[in-house]
Design a protein around this nucleic acid. Sequence first.
RNA 1: GGGCGGUUAGCUCAGUUGGUUAGAGCGUCUGCCUUACAAGCAGAAGGUCACAGGUUCGAGCCCUGUACCGCCCACCA
Length: 902
Amino acid sequence: DGLIYRGKRLVNWDPATQTVLADDEVEHETVQGSFWYLQYPLVGDPVEINGQRVDHVTVATTRPETMLGDTAVAMNPADPRAKALADRKVRLPIVGREIPIIADDHVVLPNPESEDEKARFSTGFLKVTPAHDPNDYEIGQRHGLPRINVMAPDGTISEKYGWLDWDQVGKDNPDLQALLGKDRFEARAWIEEFFRQEKLLEDVRPYTHEVGHSYRSHVPIEPYLSDQWYIAVKRPIADCGVPLAEWVSEHPDLVEEKDGVTVLQGTDVPVNSLAGLALAPLLDGRLEFTPDRYAKNYQAWLENLRDWPISRQLWWGHRIPVWTFVHFHARNVSAGSTDRDAWHAASEGERRLREYMEACNLGEQFVARIADDLIDGHVPIFVCSRSQDADLALDLLTQIMDQRATSDLSREGLQAYNEQQHQLEGRFGIGAKNAAVSLRTGLRLVRRDPDVLDTWFSSALWPFSTLGWPTPTPELQRYYPGDVLCTAREIITLWVSRMVMMGQYCCGDIPFSDVFIHAMIQDGEGRKMSKSLGNGIDPLDIIDSHGADAMRFTLVSMTTQTQDVRMPVEAMNLPDGRTVNSSPKFDIGRNFCNKLWNASRFAMMNLEGCPPWSDIRPREALADRWILSRLNTTVRDVTRALEEFRFNEVADLLYHFTWDDFCDWYLEVAKVRIRAGESGPRAIVAHVLDLILRMLHPVAPFITEAIWEKLNATARLRGPGGQAASPLLVRAEWPRCDAAAIDPAAEESFGALQDLIRQVRNVRTQHTIAPSKALDAIIVAAPGPAAELIDRNLELLRALATLGEVTLSREPVNAPPDAAAVAGRGMKLYLLGAVDRAAETARLTKQRDKLLGGIQGVEAKLANEKFLAKAPENVVATERERLASMRAELADVEKLLGEPGT
RNA sequence: GGGCGGUUAGCUCAGUUGGUUAGAGCGUCUGCCUUACAAGCAGAAGGUCACAGGUUCGAGCCCUGUACCGCCCACCA
C-alpha cells in the first residue's frame, strides 16, 4: 500500500549497540550538564553595534563536539544586531570552515530576566549542525544548508561518514587529524581545551537538562543521519480492508473534512491511515481501557504520531524481506552522471524488473519502490517480498546462509550454499552476490537488506501471526479477535497501539476489546526494580521460596487500580543454599495456600462415602443455611469483581470467605456435628470446597487442581446442572450464584451466635481462664426466636465457646454470684465460675463506654433539625433503629454492671 | 514544559454513586502444641485518613490551594 518507505533522516542512534531507536524507545533522563559559550571569529572587518566593536559571535551549546559539523550560525531576525550581522560569515575554529550567519525565527532571543531558561542562557546566536541535531536539521532544510556528519556509527569522530568538505578542511589540519577516532565525549573535552587555550571559551555555566538515553544501553542518544525504513502512519490508504465508509456515516460526530481528506475530529489523522485505524475503535467505544485514564495516553500518542522507523541494526529479529537492486543502463550510468540520468535508469530498471517478475509469475508478489538515495551513483530499486512460495523459500535459505560467516559452514553447507546461489541466479537471471550483471534485465542484485524489523513491529503481529495468519486457519477464525489484553502501562504505545493498528490493517478488526493496565511493582523504597540497582525480584526465585501459586495469589491480591505498588525486597536463604531476593509479601499467598491445603486434608478425612450434595435437602441447620448464603454471596461478588477487572477484590473475597467463614467457623461447626453422626455437613463441606476451588483456580491453579482431583474422586462432584463434573478443574464450569440460597435471616441469626461466642472467648481471656477449662453457663433468652436459636444450637455453643453444662432459661433469672455476664441481641449469658471481679468490671465498663460514645454520636445527629429535614428518610430511620438497639444494649450492660456478680 | 498517580495503623495496602463507631495482611501484646493447619488457633492494643480552606444535615471520598514521593510524555541551543 505504499506505506513503507526509505529515507535519510536524523534518527535516534544508539552508538553503544549501534542501532536506531524509535522515539518511544528513548528514555529521558535529567543530566547535570553545562552550557559552553564558544566564540566564532567574524570573517572580514569587524562591525559596530551600539558603539561597540564586534569581531566575533558567541554561540551557546550543550554539545561543543558537534561544532565540527556546523554549517551556519543562526540568529533571530528580530534581534537588533541582525541588521549588522546577517549574511556575514564566521570562521569555524579548529575546522577553518567559513559558514554564514543566517536569520531564523527558531532562535530564542537572549533575556537574562526571562522565565524561559533557554532565553536566560541564550546569546542570541545558535550554532547550526544539521547532521547532529533535530532542530538544526529543520533549520538546515529551511536554508538549504549542507549536512556534515562528523561521526562514525560508534560515536567517534570520523571523516568517513559524510564529512563533505574533508578534502578542503581536514587533509592538512593537524587538529582535526588529532580528533579522528576520539569518542564524542573525549572530543568534547579536547575541543573545550582548544577553545580555552585559544581564548575563545567565553564561559562555562552549569545546566540541568533532559537528555535522551537508549532504553537498551542507557547511553545518551546521538541524533544521527542515517538511511532507515519508515512506515507512514498518517498516509491515507486507498483500500485498507476495514469498512470505513459505513463507519464514517455511523459516526459523523467523530470525523471532519480537512483539505479533502476525512480526518478524525480535531486531529490531522485520516480515518483510513494506520493511526486512524488504531484511534477509531477507542473513540467509538469498541476499545476500552481499565483504568480508563490510560485511554488518554493512547489517544494523545496516536494523535501526535510521527512516522515510525522500523529498521533495526540488530542480529535478532525478523529480517526485513527486502532486496536491493540497481540497474545498469546501456549508457553506463555511473558515478559522475547526473541525478536525472540515474532516475531515468532506475525507472527503466524498475519497469524491466516488473516485466521480468511477471514473466516468472512473480508479478503479484513483489512490490518495487524507488528511494531517494544513491548506491555507487545509481538509484537503487528495493523489492519487498510478499509471498511464501518456493522461490522465496529459496531466497530465504540463501539469506540465512548469508548471515553466517563462511568459515562457520561445513563443507557440505558451503556446497549447499553455492548451489542455492546458482539456482537463484538461474531463476532470476541475475547474480545473488558478487555476481555479474544480468544481461537480460540490466539489473544487479546488490544485497538482501541486512536490517531486522523493530521488535515492536514483529510484536504488533503477535495476536494473529501466532494463529497462522495470513493463512485462514481454524485457530485464527476461532481466536481472533480476542477479548482482553493485560499488560503494563509502559508499553501502551510501543505494543498495545501497534497491535490494534496491525490487527485492523491486516485482519480488519481490533485484536482485543479490553486492555487492562496493571500496576508496576516497585521496591520497598518506591524505586523501579532494575538489574543495576540489584533490587529486583526473579519470579523463578519466588517459586523456589514460596511456590508458584503463592506468588500468583499474592500478585493478584496486589493488583489494584493504582499506578504503582511497593514490594519490600529482602534477601532470603533457600534450602539449597542460594541467597536470593524475595519479599515477605509472598507469605500471604504461601500461608493461604497452606491453609487451603490443610482444610482440604480435613475435608478429605471426612468425606469418604458421604452422600452427594444434591441429596441433602432440605437444609434446615442454621450453620448450613449460613455458609451456603455466604458461599453464594461470594460467588456473586467474585464473579462481578472478575468481570470488572478488580482482581485484588477477587483474591480478597476468596481469602476471607475461605479462611474466616469456611475454616474458622463452618469447619469447626462441622467437626462437632460430624462427630455427632450427622452426614449433612459432610456433603456441604464437599460442595463449598468444590466451589472455592473453582473460583480460586485462576488465582492458584496448581494447588486447586491437585485438591480437586482428590475431592472429585472422594465426593463425586456435580456440575451446576447436576451432570458429572469434569475430571479436570481447569475445564470445570465457573460456579453460578444461586440467589435463592442467599439468606439474610440466617446470616443475622448465625451472626448473633458468633457474637455470643466471641464475647465468651473475650471473657475467658480477660479473666485468664485456661482455654481448655470448660465453664458452665446459664443463658437467658426471651421466648420466641431468641430462645429457639439458643435451643437449637446448644451443642454448637458448648463446643465453640468451650462450655460445660448449659442451662437455657426463658425467664429472667437472678444473676448468679461469681458469674461473668455477656449480653446482646435479646440474650444474656452468665458464665459461671469466672470470679475476677475487677476484670469483669473493666470489661463491662469498656463495653459501656464504647456504647455511650456511639449513642452520643447518633443522638447529636438526630437532634440536628437540618439532618432530620434534609437527610433521606431511610437514613434517618436507620439512625433511629441504631439508637434504639444501642440503648437496649446499654441498658443490659449497665444492669450487669450493677448486678451482684460484678 | 505538559499530563497522570500517590500521601489512610509501626510496615504494605483496601475503602465501589458522600451515610453505622474507617478495614485487611504483616508486625506488636496476652494466652494456647484444642487429633486439618504453630506458615496455626483464640483474644487484644494500635489511625487528627499529608496540610489549609470550601461545599454539604453529613466528607477518607466532592471542590480549591499547598507540600512531599513517584510515573509517563515532550526536538539535548
